[in-house]
């Protein structure tokens, strides 16, 4: 008796959730790396510049992401009043609500601290809080999906959303996309700064961008490795997970996963970094456009990843039937008549 697979569509039907997961993860990433740079950079120009840009990128990201999250609700107005409504504290949606609810203002404050220059001390305090909160933010996007974590009897019913791998995957992807976003922003910043000197900063954006790009490579490597482990776990997991594995690597989602994420978001960018390195260091051509392209690709890849994961959630763990029951009375063959 082959199992029944119930397909269900909801989050995958609209852009809200994938974009929220993407932007939320990204914001978490930018926030963390930015704050880290700020804390560890020892006030050196490059690091300061990076941290500043990161802070600026975080704000729109989390705001747009938050809006997307609210508007996927059937009743957004109730969603906005989450502190009043969200009463079930073992639900990751409630937890998430609070995370986003604290993260957003903090990111604003941190950005403001840069813009209005509250002074280093204040900023570093904010940064110190921002680092862990940024991590939680990205982590949470993963937990939201693998919500079955709080399930009784320790079962969860969307096999692709593996609670052991998804959160970390989203954190790493948060880093890679976050760094990419910062890198891109830094480059653009440089150009803008030339036209609007009052933005300040400017400086050698090239080196910063390049450094960012290298950091990103590290993140991408980690992410790639993790994806590998994730797939391995799925392939060797329960029947449901094996189906999910098939769906992702062979099924309808395969093109999105392989081309859209693995190629666009991981392989090509790393290759691009290599080429850029050679071009720059060996042949001394700046070849900035390669960096631009790479950052954009990483971002695109990160978005596609969220989409594939959400779409993959349409596959539910299969229901199984009990074995057949009625013994068919078997009649011995008849002489001369066969059968």
């Amino acid at each position: 008796m082959e199992p029944i697979v119930l397909w269900q569509h909801k989050w995958g039907l609209s852009f809200h959730i994938p974009w929220y997961l993407f932007l939320g993860g990204l914001a978490g990433g930018t926030m963390t790396v930015g704050a880290l740079a700020d804390l560890l950079g020892g006030g050196r120009q490059g690091f300061r510049q990076f941290a500043k840009v990161a802070a600026y990128v975080t704000v729109p990201a989390i705001l747009v992401g938050g809006l997307a999250l609210s508007f996927h609700l059937g009743k957004p107005e109730r969603g906005f009043a989450f502190p009043l409504f969200f009463t079930n504290y073992q639900s990751w949606l409630t937890i998430g609500g609070s995370v986003v609810g604290t993260f957003a203002p903090l990111s604003l404050a941190y950005a403001a601290a840069w813009y209005f220059d509250f002074g280093r001390a204040v900023r570093l305090v904010l940064a110190a809080i921002a680092v862990p909160l940024g991590l939680v933010m990205s982590l949470y996007t993963g937990f939201l999906l693998s919500a079955a974590w709080v399930m009784p009897a320790d079962r969860w019913y969307v096999p692709l959303w593996d609670r052991d791998y998804l959160p970390v995957l989203f954190v790493l992807s948060g880093f890679s996309t976050g760094l990419a976003a910062c890198g891109l922003a830094v480059l653009l910043w440089g150009r803008l700064a030339r036209h609007f000197p009052r933005l300040g900063g400017g400086g050698d954006t090239g080196t910063v961008a390049e450094a960012t790009s290298l950091a990103d490579v590290a993140a991408l490597l980690a992410e790639g490795a993790w994806v590998y482990l994730f797939l391995g776990a799925l392939a060797s997991g329960t029947l449901g997970q094996q189906m999910a594995f098939g769906l992702l690597t062979r099924g309808e989602l395969a093109p999105w996963f392989w081309w859209g994420f693995v190629a666009t978001g991981l392989a090509v960018p790393m290759l691009a970094s290599l080429i850029h390195l050679v071009a720059h260091r060996v042949f001394h051509v700046p070849a900035r456009w390669i960096l631009y392209a790479k950052f954009v690709l990483v971002l695109a890849g990160g978005l596609v990843l969220r989409y594939t994961i959400v779409w993959g959630g349409d596959l539910k763990a299969p229901l199984v039937f009990p074995p057949a029951l009625f013994q068919v009375p078997t009649l011995p063959p008849l002489p001369g008549l066969g059968g």
Binding site: P329, L331, P333, L334, L337, G338, G339
Partner: peptide, 16 residues
């Protein structure tokens, strides 16, 4: 209908 099935059905009807 295969002869074997004819035999099966005939016998099933006769024995039950």
């Amino acid at each position: 209908v295969p002869e074997a099935d004819l035999a099966w059905v005939a016998r099933a009807m006769a024995e039950n």
